[in-house]
């Protein structure tokens, strides 16, 4: 089992790499097309602004690689910004489209709903898709670490595998066939997060 962690200069890869290794995966931290194509699974992390991240992916030709690999049914996990990039566009970036692998957009939490922005800290998962392998062993109420101002709003609600309540119930795990995305940081969510990464390693 070899997992590519796409390294495009946008954020932290060390915790993800170490956790996946711990569960027995060989890791390739890479921005090379052939390396990515040679791996069994792909992780797209990401911290930063949507437009910068997308521009970086495009500059390095990684957008095409990701689309191609996803089309080939390779298991794919987007984390935080890495999830948001899967959608078509974001309120954070007017002039930059996302990868468009999932239909829908990324929207900002509304101010004045009594909730502070960013949504920062530990909050509960509400599991919607009990058969989502990524969430195997994690009951509703499991807590994960969030650190974000924007959240995904997919067109097709049936791909929402879990939600979180923060003034409104927003999607925090998306799942469509081989594509998974989490808005929180599993690599920073202690035991619960590690279970999710273990589930990703063990996906068939």
């Amino acid at each position: 089992m070899k997992i590519a962690i796409i390294d495009y200069g946008m954020g932290n890869i060390h915790s993800v790499a170490k956790a996946l290794e711990f569960f027995g995966a060989a890791i390739s931290v890479t921005n090379k097309k052939n390396d990515i194509a040679g791996c069994d699974k792909i992780v797209l992390p990401g911290v930063g602004a949507f437009d910068d991240a997308m521009a970086e992916l495009e500059k390095q030709g990684l957008d095409m690689v990701i689309k191609e690999q996803v089309k080939n049914k390779k298991p794919f996990l987007g984390i935080c910004l890495g999830l948001q990039l899967l959608l078509e566009d974001s309120q954070e970036a007017k002039d930059k489209k996302g990868l468009g692998i999932l239909k829908g957009r990324v929207v900002k939490f509304k101010a004045g709903a009594g909730q502070k922005i960013p949504h920062m800290g530990w909050n509960d998962l509400k599991v919607i898709s009990g058969d989502c392998s990524l969430l195997s062993g994690l009951p509703t109420g499991s807590q994960v670490y969030f650190c974000h101002s924007y959240y995904p709003s997919p067109l097709d609600e049936s791909i929402i595998a879990a939600t979180t309540d923060y003034g409104l119930e927003f999607p925090c795990v998306l799942w469509k066939e081989n594509v998974y995305g989490v808005q929180f940081h599993p690599e920073k969510s202690q035991a619960v997060g590690l279970k999710i990464l273990e589930n990703f390693v063990n996906l068939c």
Binding site: H14, H185, S189, Q190
Partner: peptide, 8 residues
């Protein structure tokens, strides 16, 4: 630190 602890 990031390689050894899985918390923010």
């Amino acid at each position: 630190i990031a390689r050894n602890i899985f918390m923010p």
